[in-house]
Design a protein around this nucleic acid. Structure first.
Lengths: 209, 209
DNA sequence: TGATGTGTCACCCGATAAGGGTACAGGAAG
DNA sequence: CTTCCTGTACCCTTATCGGGTGACACATCA
């Protein structure tokens, strides 16, 4: 049984080119192609394709929104975004929404067939620049500045960041409220802040906890 | 000038195979290869390679630790992990540490040359299953619960989460302190919390801001 | 039309946090 | 041995916050 593919692409030329390209292989069958996603839910439910090729910039309902709709009822279909956008927002929004692959249009002729194969094999085909963006986003996970907090101070900052009041911290650690206050003051000093919120905000955002 | 490649791999057979494989191409030159990373800092500084192929499971200093050491002084060299590990921990730790690509050993013969090309071109070569893991990790990034906050409330919660006091928020938004307090109270109500810290902690951890 | 939700503002009180200072014991480091 | 750092503890004053209550304008919606 050939792999059934559903295409959403508002540019009629590209839509037809994709169909032709895929039909050449014999392994893939385009079960339908549409210029917009206004009825994406019904279409996917009815056709139940193996793979969906999804443009992002389409009238009425954009491709990312469409992916979200599909994922709300179908986790199995493999969705490859096919677009000219290579900016962070579009890429990450598509990923968050539940896309399985992200191919820039300039690579379609070279990579589409291979990408469909890859996504069906449990991979996540991405254009090189996209892959780099994705892993870069994981890396800019902060150098985690060192504010020279002592172990005790980190412990207290951690409890504070979890939403505990001074009183609760004192109880948890079995020390007096004033001791907690002393630690907190030293933490403020080292973090260059002067209130809970600033400290907590800084702690969480800079992953000190 | 050929691309210079540095190899860290404790298995002597594989180390030599890699060297042979790369030398066949002519484009790549293995400037050195070592069975462990004990002197990785000095070696990388001296040889200044274009690409490093890094095994993970090595004696003395493992590959992930080594990547961290390299990244502490060199952001430019492209590092491709070459390993049998395909579990989350190893993959993500390597990414966090600063690897640019992650190739499972079973794909080496097929993909190594292409992957080196890709990483030099600004891509992030990954074995298909690794790529899928990476984007899956982005997806299960929180359903982002809906607490029915109004736009204004979100705005205020956001300012609060950045470390602003009520007074500062009032100033920023040009509204009275009491109004801010009213909003905050409603936010607490909706978030089921009863203090700044809890609200900020919840807001940041659940990505409401 | 009235009910509801939102954004705005106000006042109250008690609890909590901030800012300042001082003190001391124990361990590490000089 | 003495200084420095850390963790502990207490004091005081002022500022801020949390909880409650009430009010009003404006919009939407029933």
């Amino acid at each position: 049984m050939p792999v059934s593919i559903l295409i959403y692409e508002d540019n009629i030329n590209l839509r037809e080119s994709l169909g032709n390209l895929l039909s050449l292989t014999g392994d893939y069958q385009v079960c339908a192609s549409y210029p917009d996603c206004s009825a994406v839910t019904e279409q996917v439910k009815e056709l139940n394709p193996d793979v969906i090729l999804m443009d992002i910039d389409m009238p009425v309902v954009n491709g990312i929104e469409a992916v979200g709709r599909i994922r709300s009822f179908n986790q199995a279909v493999q969705i490859i975004m096919l677009t000219v956008f290579d900016d962070n927002t579009h890429v990450f929004d598509a990923m968050y929404a539940g896309a399985n692959g992200y191919l820039l249009k300039k690579y379609i002729s070279d990579k589409l067939i291979h990408s469909i194969r890859e996504v069906l094999d449990g991979g996540a085909p991405m254009s090189p620049s996209i892959a780099r963006m994705v892993i870069s986003s994981m890396q800019k996970a902060a150098p985690a500045k060192d504010y020279q907090l002592t172990a005790r101070e980190k412990e207290i900052l951690q409890l504070l960041s979890r939403g505990n009041s001074f009183k609760m911290i004192a109880g948890d650690l079995s020390i007096s409220l004033d001791t907690v206050r002393t630690h907190i003051k030293r933490i403020y000093d080292k973090l260059h802040v002067c209130s809970q919120i600033e400290a907590v905000s800084k702690a969480i955002n800079e992953k000190l906890v």
